[in-house]
Design a protein around this nucleic acid. Structure first.
Lengths: 118, 118
DNA sequence: CTGAATCCAGATGGATACTG
DNA sequence: CAGTATCCATCTGGATTCAG
């Protein structure tokens, strides 16, 4: 019996860890906006993304893009132009983010309603 | 035409904001673990939650619970015992978190696979 | 154009001690 | 038991400047 409870706790831990993984990927003030920007246009350059999102710095964009790349969600391509341009697009795996973002959007809308209408 | 693009951009902004709302609610290292703990048992006391989650302080638990309460996700009940005990449970709205957490769990598991198996 | 480097203020969160 | 208060180290992220 105690063993079952232990198994249950382990399973819970695994699940909490999985959610944390998702949150880690999506965290950072700007990640979702960045993904949305890239996703809208299919391919998007550094300066374009910077323009799509108001009030944020290239330092942050650089950092967040790097994290997205490490997580294999975004593919980075250097274009052979002068000066150099860099193009970002979602990987196949990155595209699966759309579902989760859509879920979060729906919940966010419902949440706002629940808070202000009750 | 320019107008349609403007509308599109506005809609995008609304959607990004909705996701951010969700993220705000779920953010903080411990919120998901707390919700999971309460959700597992239906009702849960302060000290119990503190015990369910390893390595974190009552200061944080207090803070996160307060935020969850402000967002109407958790209901706080003071029990008339000596010494006082406090019980936390999910509200009806709080229960809708289960779906979103489940989605995030699934994506987290898939993400881990995608990163390590490719 | 695409970043990296530096500086710096403010937020975050752990440890500890204390209160009703 | 259920928090609150304080101290303090670390992290975060904006502004600005510089480089390939």
């Amino acid at each position: 019996m105690g063993c079952k409870i232990e198994e249950f706790k382990q399973e819970q831990k695994r699940r909490v860890r999985a959610v944390q993984d998702s949150m880690d990927v999506l965290n950072g003030k700007w990640k979702i906006a960045i993904v949305t920007s890239i996703c809208c246009y299919g391919k998007r350059r550094f300066a374009d993304i910077l323009n799509d999102i108001e009030v944020f710095s290239n330092r942050m964009l650089s950092k967040e893009l790097k994290e997205l790349e490490i997580n294999h969600l975004v593919k980075r391509t250097v274009l052979d132009t002068q000066p150099i341009m860099v193009q970002y697009e979602l990987t196949q795996h990155g595209n699966t983010l759309q579902t989760i973002i859509s879920n979060l959007t729906d919940w966010g809308i419902a949440h706002r309603k629940a808070i202000f209408n009750q």
